[in-house]
Amino acid sequence: MEYTGLIQTILGGVGVGSVYALLGLAFALVFGKLKICSYMHGDLAILAAYLGYFIFTSIGLDPFLSLIVLIPIFFFIGYYIQVIFMKPFMSMEIWQGRYQAQIMVTWGLGMCIMAIEFIIWSGTYRMISVPYRNATLNFSNLTVPVVHLLSLGALLLIYLVLSLVLQKTDLGISFRACSVDRITAMLTGINYQKICAISFGISSAIAVVAGTFYALTHQITPAVGLELTFKGWVAVIIGGMGSLGGVILAGLLVGLVESLTSFFWIPALKEAVLFVGLLLLLIFRPGGLFKAK
């Protein structure tokens, strides 16, 4: 029976990890390629989770159905955040403190989002109690939560679509062009700021999906936003700064480390173990575990 428990834990870890992986993906997309550093996607995710909760409790719409509305809304929110708040920093070089400035602005915005959530929904833990929240699929004596399967599926789907878009479409090629040489991209006639804004929009839309799945597996409270942001960044660092595949593996790993710590040791230490692991990684492989060549 102990054996089944372990497998159960691993499955749970992968399920939770897919939320971190999604957030990591959102960060890696704008950071790894366009050098835009965001510290607000965790808060965006939680905001989406709250909106999903609000829609579910007020009109009873399923969170997955509300995604159809929320994804475009958050795409535009992200688009205009980039246009209004991030644009002034896009011409800064890294040594001029570009990342610091971007971190501070996005973090400030994230703080505002968190505060608004506190004001509207208070700090009480909320839960979206959809009927399938605790539904499971049974394979012999293993029970797999349906929500975890769905989130893993969504993660893979988003990754595939993203890779396909990056490889094949005009938008993707422009995006890759902007990622290596901003000036040449402009001289080629690519609207650099627009590409950045669209990317930020897409990454915000990914955060919505992450937030929805988080709300379906956890109870939500506003302060979780910053925590999710950091978990997402841990995935990016472990994954080797911007390789999308590496970030996904790293995100799943983060989830695994947390669930295994809870299983074998004390749940309160799961984050401590994760960050000790991160510090060790910084000593032995500062470039990340799955560094892109």
């Binding site: 005009d170 090629i173 422009s174 890759r176 062009a177 990622s179 290596v180 040489d181 000036i183 040449t184 991209a185 001289l187 080629t188 006639g189 690519i190």
Partner: peptide, 17 residues
């Protein structure tokens, strides 16, 4: 300086223009 995108193929470089 620059003028080309080293991470794109030559065809992509031309098409993107």
């Amino acid at each position: 300086e620059g003028g080309t995108f080293p991470n794109l193929t030559i065809e992509e470089n031309l098409m993107i223009s």
